[in-house]
Amino acid sequence: MSTAQENSIASGVREILADYQGAGRDALIPILQEIQTRQGFLSREAVVEVGKFLHLPASKIFGVATFYNQFRFTPQGKFHIQVCRGTACHVKGSAAILEAMKRELKVAPGETTRDGLFSLEVVACIGACGLAPVINVNGNFHANLTTQAVPRILDTYRKQK
């Protein structure tokens, strides 16, 4: 990340923190949520800024943030893929879908491909059990998936870039 990007992240975080003057450590999670909503992920710079503001060590903030599934530490890709690993999807073979995704994209859940195109996330259940196994890419659902379909779907998004 360039220094300019780091600075803009840090100043964005300071803008958010301006609304939390006088807040204590109990404000940590709301602050992290707001940063993630605005910036898409929690960067080192963001964690360090929050640490200075709340007088909390970076390790503690990182510990709290990694406890919850909702926080991510790399920027989202242009296409954000959520693979449902809920019960119905599991029964219908979502583990294999996830493996195929990892193999095709060469990233683990929570990570983003080097070209910044795709990010992968595992979600517990997206409430579309009738479509199992299902994935959600930027709000578009792909239903009744097979492992063979995975490369094809990824290709259609690659063409859209």
Binding site: R44, P57, S59, F73
Partner: peptide, 28 residues
């Protein structure tokens, strides 16, 4: 009073480590 390490992650994935899994050499 250093707090360089903490519990990272949850459940069976929990480990003790630094923020962002950095090496101790660049940590506090």
């Amino acid at each position: 009073g250093v707090s360089c390490i903490d519990f990272i992650g949850r459940g069976s994935h929990a480990t003790v480590g630094t923020a962002f899994g950095e090496g101790l050499n660049i940590s506090s």
